[in-house]
Design a protein around this nucleic acid. Structure first.
Length: 423
RNA sequence: GGAGGGGUGGCCGAGUGGUCGAAGGCGGGUGAUUUGAAAUCACCAGUGGGUUUACAGCCCACCGGGGGUUCGAAUCCCUCCCCCUCCGCCA
């Protein structure tokens, strides 16, 4: 959520920044300004009425103590009460609308973010590793995996539908090895390992920004009014929802492995083959809660920590700075890390590292008290470190051999106790 | 799932219809004392919102959430949520 005061005091700046994402957002700002003015005018009247009611009720109390007659005053307060109720109704209507509009406005892009309406305006900031030259035509990961008997898409379709998979044998083991490898790596670097709930309340998803705008992306359990998490970012970032942290507690670094559940509505036809886009996938997620002045340095470090996973696994990648039009709803600045897929001859997203500044903190109401005793919203960051399924796919493709076997990257060997996965 | 108990400020905890935004304690801040610290003493401090140049003053709201009774609710009623204890069930 944006700071209403910023919108009020500097509407043109807010409009300018938002329109770099999407021109139509300007209308929402105008709506906010109008509703906010309405709200304040109603509130002023209402508070005046309440003040006089309070004063008169107090007087009644005093008069009664002395045994005097109060029926006239009581009659007056009764009339005031009706008027108050009317104003309260009007006000809560306006406030509800204001809140709803506010919750649908995305974060302001940071000034260092390139302006552009789609991914063609993203800027590559660095590359690491050289794509391997194959002496044969590199196969897509699903062909490699099916031949090795480690993917079973058909039976997954039978029991769950499309975009699900059974990982079997070495596939399941490799997935598990990657989870452990990444958790171990990040916890050694000072991230605290967390196992969060996978089902969360609606307000939690409002906190991180998935609700109210992206409801159709989420799995929902109606009987219990709970949502399946689309990423560990949701429970981790919200861990300190509605809390006031002390300055010494910051920064907080967390790492978590969870499955992610996404309906992938509106992605029909995209990546139908393979395990790139699934309704359920595993991910190791990094979340940081920091002081505002540190958040941009922390974003660079977070991104570097995610990159380390690929470096250690020897997978070529590049880092892309997303443009304004391609960034997620809550983010002020995002780096995507894209890993090389030989069969596609392309880099594909495997991690997304974002600084949300105080956007989520406002929604969650997570603050900290500084040494002067003042309250500030924290800044929140998140990044995949990394998406497990896509890492597994990248390993299959980058480490495939002519005979269909796959070499196990060095750091995973101690977890898998094998150097090669063959039929 | 059943029975009972409970949710009050950063924390603990008193408060059962009218100067209660809320006693007291801890923790915090400022000052005094001290060479310094501890201890002691004095004083200051909730959060959000409105008004405003103002973190001054004034006003409004907030005692788990929502609704109700009343001239007036932290206090009474309804409802939901959460926590604790016991029983049942269960990986």
């Amino acid at each position: 959520m944006l700071d209403i005061e910023l919108i009020r005091k500097n509407p043109d700046f807010v409009k300018e920044r938002l329109s770099t994402r999407d021109k139509s957002l300007v209308e929402l700002v105008d709506e906010v300004l109008q509703l906010d003015a309405e709200r304040r005018s109603l509130l002023k009247d209402l508070e005046g009425l309440r003040a006089s009611r309070n004063a008169k009720s107090k007087e009644i109390g005093a008069l009664k103590k002395r045994g005097e007659d109060t029926s006239l005053l009581e009659e007056e307060v009764k009339k005031l009460k009706e008027k108050i109720e009317l104003y309260e109704e009007k006000l809560s209507f306006v406030e509800e609308r204001l809140r709803d509009v506010m919750l649908r406005i995305p974060n302001l892009p940071h000034e260092s973010v390139p302006v552009g309406e789609d991914e063609t305006y993203n800027v590559e900031v660095r590359r690491w590793g050289k794509p391997k030259e194959f002496s044969f035509e590199p196969k897509p990961h699903w062909e490699i995996g099916e031949r090795l008997g480690i993917f079973d898409f058909e039976r997954a379709g039978k029991i769950s539908g499309s975009r699900f998979v059974f990982l079997k044998g070495w596939g399941a083991k490799l997935e598990r090895a990657l989870i452990n490898f990444m958790l171990d790596l990040h916890s050694r670097k000072g991230y605290k390992e967390i196992m969060p709930p996978h089902l969360v309340k609606p307000e939690v998803l409002v906190g991180t920004g998935q609700l109210p705008k992206f409801e159709e992306e989420l799995y929902y359990c109606e009987r219990d009014d709970l949502y399946l998490i689309p990423t560990a970012e949701v429970p981790l970032t919200n861990l300190f929802m509605k809390e006031i942290l002390s300055e010494e507690e910051l920064p907080i670094y967390m790492v978590s492995y969870t499955p992610c559940y996404r309906r992938e509505a509106g992605s029909y036809g995209k990546d139908i083959k393979g395990i790139i886009r699934q309704h359920q996938f595993n991910k190791v997620e990094l979340v940081k809660i920091v002081k505002p002045e540190d958040s941009y340095v922390e974003l660079e470090r977070l991104t570097a920590d995610a990159e380390d996973v690929l470096k250690l696994l020897g997978l070529p990648y590049r880092v892309v700075l997303l443009c304004t039009g391609d960034m997620g709803f809550a983010s002020a600045k995002t780096y995507d890390i894209e890993v090389w897929f030989p069969s596609q001859g392309k880099y594909r997203e495997i991690s997304s590292c974002s600084n949300c500044e105080d956007f989520q903190a406002r929604r969650m109401n997570t603050r900290y008290r500084d040494s002067q005793g003042r309250l500030h919203f924290v800044h929140t960051l998140n990044g995949s470190g990394l998406a497990i399924g896509r890492t597994l796919a990248a390993i299959l493709e980058n480490y495939q051999q002519k005979d269909g076997s796959v070499v196990v990257p060095e750091p995973l060997r101690e977890y898998l106790r094998t150097e090669v996965i063959a039929i």
